[in-house]
Simulated assay, not measured.
Amino acid sequence: MKISLVAGARPNFMKIAPILKAIEIRKQEHNISYRLIHTGQHYDKNMSDNFFKQLNIPEPHINLESGGGTQAEQTASIMVKFEKELLSHRPDVVLVVGDVTSTLACTIVAKKLCIDVVHVEAGIRSGDMTMPEEINRIVTDSLCDHFFTTSEVANENLIRNGVAKKRIHFVGNTMIDTLLQNLHRIKKPSILTEHGLSEHEYFLITLHRPANVDDKDNLKYLLDKILEYTFPYKVLFPVHPRTKIILDNLKYSNDQLIQIEPMGYLEFIYLVKNSKAVITDSGGITEEATVLNVPCLTLRNSTERPETISIGSNVLVGTNPENLESYIKDIIDNKWKQSGIPPLWDGRTSERIVDTMIKIYEMKQFAEGVSN
Results as ranks from 00 to 15, higher is better:
1 M>S: 11
19 I>H: 00
28 Q>A: 15
29 E>D: 12
29 E>W: 08
32 I>V: 04
33 S>D: 14
41 Q>F: 00
42 H>F: 04
76 A>C: 14
85 E>N: 08
91 P>H: 02
93 V>H: 04
109 V>Y: 00
118 V>C: 10
120 V>E: 00
120 V>S: 00
126 S>G: 11
135 I>C: 09
136 N>L: 08
140 T>N: 06
154 A>P: 02
164 A>S: 13
165 K>R: 14
166 K>D: 15
172 G>Y: 01
179 L>T: 07
186 I>A: 01
200 H>F: 08
206 T>G: 06
209 R>A: 04
214 D>M: 12
220 K>P: 04
220 K>N: 11
225 K>I: 12
236 L>K: 00
237 F>P: 05
241 P>R: 05
241 P>C: 07
245 I>V: 15
248 D>R: 12
262 P>N: 02
276 K>T: 08
277 A>R: 01
278 V>F: 03
284 G>C: 07
285 I>Q: 02
290 T>I: 03
293 N>S: 15
297 L>D: 04
301 N>Q: 13
303 T>G: 07
304 E>Q: 05
304 E>M: 08
307 E>I: 05
315 V>E: 09
318 G>T: 06
320 N>L: 08
321 P>Q: 02
333 D>V: 13
348 R>L: 15
355 D>G: 11
360 I>M: 03
361 Y>N: 03
361 Y>D: 06
362 E>K: 13
366 F>T: 15
